[in-house]
């Protein structure tokens, strides 16, 4: 049975322990435009932040981590899984939250959208319903079950997008500027949500406050890691460099 066998492989991959995100001599170019230059990193921490100027390669780096971008050269390993050859397993392991929630909400109403990923995973209907309710309650959307998604506030949309990813129970979550379009109150709300996650996270952001409690921060500059270390020093280095 074709589905069953491949399904078993994925299940086995889901049981893999979280070890590290590894980039080995990774370079990437869009067409002939180089964006990342020979990056080698091992990220074993639970909270990793990424900062850097516009166009420095942060989003490209983030997309490498769940195989949305496969590097032109080098290897990306997620807990030992190669994003080039084990894409499905990697995608199931790593959730991805984008900057613009409007672009990642695909169903017209709130509950239907949260359910989407579970349907793709083949989760049975009664369990889907239970997990969706659980997520909506956790993110303050329980009263908006059948609400049209485009009538939500910006903050609620981002929470919905996050719920749609977390309901699939990934081991890791990558956030690419999750708070850029939000006001201060909603930025704090999303920061708290990220803070409370049991998952390991990588957060790309221009909101440096988000990264205060983090284990490690990377500063990207022209496609290279220019600084790497504890948030206090790295962020100070980054801010000093701008002034």
């Amino acid at each position: 049975m074709r589905w069953g066998r491949r399904g078993a492989e994925v299940t086995a991959a889901a049981d893999l322990p979280r070890t590290a995100l590894e980039l080995q001599n990774v370079s990437h170019a869009y067409g002939d435009r180089p964006v990342l230059h020979d990056v080698t990193l091992t990220l074993g921490e639970s909270r990793v932040g990424v900062v850097g100027a516009n166009g420095s390669g942060k989003s490209t780096f983030a997309r490498l981590l769940n195989g949305l971008v496969v590097p032109s050269a080098g290897t990306v390993l997620v807990d030992g899984l190669d994003t080039r050859t084990q894409l499905r397993e990697v995608r199931r392991r790593v959730g991805f939250v984008f900057q613009d929630p409007d672009a990642q909400i695909v169903h017209p109403t709130v509950a239907e959208d949260v359910e989407f990923g579970l349907t793709n995973l083949g989760v049975p209907a009664d369990e889907r319903a239970r997990r969706v309710e659980d997520m909506l309650a956790r993110y303050g959307l329980a009263g908006h079950h059948d609400h049209p998604a485009h009538l939500l506030s910006g903050g609620q949309k981002q929470l919905l997008a996050i719920a749609g990813v977390l309901v699939m129970q990934p081991q890791r979550v990558v956030f690419d500027e999750p708070t850029t379009l939000l006001d201060l109150a909603n930025t704090r709300r999303v920061a708290r949500v990220i803070d409370e996650l049991e998952q390991h996270v990588v957060v790309v952001t221009h909101h440096l406050d988000l990264l205060t409690g983090f284990d490690r921060v990377l500063v990207f500059e022209d496609g290279r890691v220019a600084a790497d270390g504890a948030p206090a020093e790295t962020l100070r280095w980054y801010v000093d460099r701008l002034s």
Binding site: W3, R91, F96, V106, N120, L121, G122, P124
Partner: peptide, 21 residues
Amino acid sequence: DARGADAPVSPRDRRAGAPAP
């Protein structure tokens, strides 16, 4: 892609609750 839409589950497996391939 990130939400698994490229991983179609056959209706039979969907009922059985098999994980996506």
